[in-house]
Write a protein that binds this DNA or RNA. Sequence first.
DNA 1: ATGGTAGGTCCCACCT
DNA 2: AGGTGGGACCTAC
Length: 730
Amino acid sequence: MISARELMRCRSYDLTELTNQILHQKRKEIEYEEIRNMYLLSPHLLKLIELTLLDSTYILRIMYELNVIPLALQITNICGNVMTRTLMGGRSERNEYLLLHAFTEKNFIVPDKEYKKKQIVNEGNDDEDLDGTRTQKTQGKRKPAYAGGLVLEPKKGFYDKFILLLDFNSLYPSIIQEYNICFTTVNREAVNKSINSDEGELVDVPDWGLEPGILPTEIRKLVESRRQVKQLMKGDVNQEQYIQILMKTKDTVQAMNLDVIYGDTDSIMINTNCTEYEQVFKIGNRVKAEINKLYRLLEIDIDYVFKSMLLLKKKKYAALSIKKAPDGSLIEEKEMKGLDIVRRDWCDLAKEAGEFVVGQILSGENRELIVETIHSKLIEVGEKVKNNDIPVELYHISKQLTKNPEDYPDKKSLPHVQVAMRFNSKGGRKMKAGDTVAYVVCEDGSALPASQRAYHPDELAKSETLKIDTKYYLANQVHPVIARLCDPIDGTDAAHLAECLGLDPSGYKHAAKQEEMDDDDALLGGVEMSDEEKYKDCNRFKFICPGITCGREIIFDGVFTGAEQFLECTLSKCPNKDCEVQLAGIIDQLVNQLTNDIRQHVRSYYQGWMKCEDTACGMVTRKLPLTFQRGHPICSACNKGILHTQTTDSWLYTQLCFYQHVFDYERAKMKLSDKEQSMANTRLKDYKEHYDILKNVTTKWLRKNAYSEVNLTKLFDGLSVLKTEIKMES
DNA sequence: ATGGTAGGTCCCACCT
DNA sequence: AGGTGGGACCTAC
């Protein structure tokens, strides 16, 4: 059981489940009451003995299948600990032994191990023992000892363009190597002070000149040997092609807007807005190259290319990954993270329905068709449930006991604890901490809340009166799982989904979708945007006509006006009929105006007005607060929200692109009819140089500023956080 | 005594 | 009635 916990993921780790999962055999369970009876007749007793021996062979065969002994031996050889201890689980002891050997070899004397009690958030005397020592009986949340990985707010929604997933390989080990983090190199006093203070002061990274520490050296050995093993396992598949891609990276000169849609700790997801596999790889490799330049050892790499993706929440998404097989064909694979479907505490009925829905959404089919298919599937599920046409196993819900059942202070409303208590009261095998309890929610004639109507599957099987609570399963299992998946999908909503399942839809709001589109999203969104859309938040270029009798405000929205034989250039003359001013003749004034406008925007960008992200607070300030959380300024008004700059670099970038666009003669020409194009090439062609002058003004500003070519901002935001982390923020 | 933090979701008690 | 905070569980990294 312990080894299986370490080596595989499973709903439950009891022998019946493992035998089923690994050996694909059905183990016969004997109920406690039966055992006594089996002693009454010798054939029955023989049967009992036979079953017991069979259990032993199951255990041996499972260990064989999982390679338990060779793997444990390998770990023990590497760490130099005791093999029985390896087999007993517990990871830290293995690390301790590995380091003890490494330090001893270098003639260090290692201090005795200290056992420290961990601080509980809610200070109080309630779990103080008689002798005054603090116990950890109340496993209330501890205050985290240090800050963990940053998780970017995802740009939720469904994507059908290729998504790149890049991640740092073995981030923490690499950080340790990159910055030479070791017990021997880090200022331990400062670390302890930092841990014990509430402020979480930062500790400096070790000086660059120091000798490599023991920890980084050991980690390098481990990472190297792991890399070798991986290489051996991979064989020579794909290598040639891999290198070739790498070589062509330089060719991708085209400036691109990298749209970072999500990231968790050591990874970044980029919407490439692209539908060509090879092209996606080029983009990915460019990013990779940019980032890897920054570090000595830290290395980012392309992990996945997703063909379509449903991004729901932090740590919750589904995607269709594609890989090239050795024969060149593309292999698709579903990748699901965090969704209810991958959790064991939802019943299979809900999970299977959810799996179907995810499959549909990712299929890339026509949206209306998908919605229709989902609806009819739900109608089918609803009817099957009502007609008792569902195998009872699909209703099983599993939850693990984290304490022994009797140790829960509030067991009344924890279904799995109640079921375990009843099970234990029968005598025989006792369910205890770490066991997984299966239960079903039943109608039992009482009016109690669902959480108090949970029964062991055996109780349901034996009872005449208990019945599956079908409404609970439709409303509280299937519906929420499906509704969450469909949230970003247009054409359906919680109420409609409920209706399909045969539930009363009035309780579910026909609410608008949860759309969290901010300016950034609009700018970089997943769909290819029209120019109007892309530049909708931009300031237009306005100019007051200097004509003595005119003074008209002229708005430049493009190069050409009118159509066909009446086609004109916006620079030819003032739009005021009675005004004779030739705009192309006063190009210097226009250049001045444009330069001023751009300066204004750049200034406002550097002035750095910030706004609190908490809309309830809404604080606007230029004063940088004194408190930071992982590199982000915290609003001093509400002490909660993160302050964001109002004129963002991406906005400024778009604004400059907009000016460029307005004066782009060649590009505007492409959109004209054939007849108009020929006019643009003849009668109007002299205006081109005037537009070019204005266009070049903006191009110069775009070049001048770092935010121009590639929008890596978010990405580097993430990276700077990583840098902060290695300063061991407490 | 027996790796960690971040984060979503459900449920209940408690408050306004 | 509706918000909030904490416990419990499970997952991502």
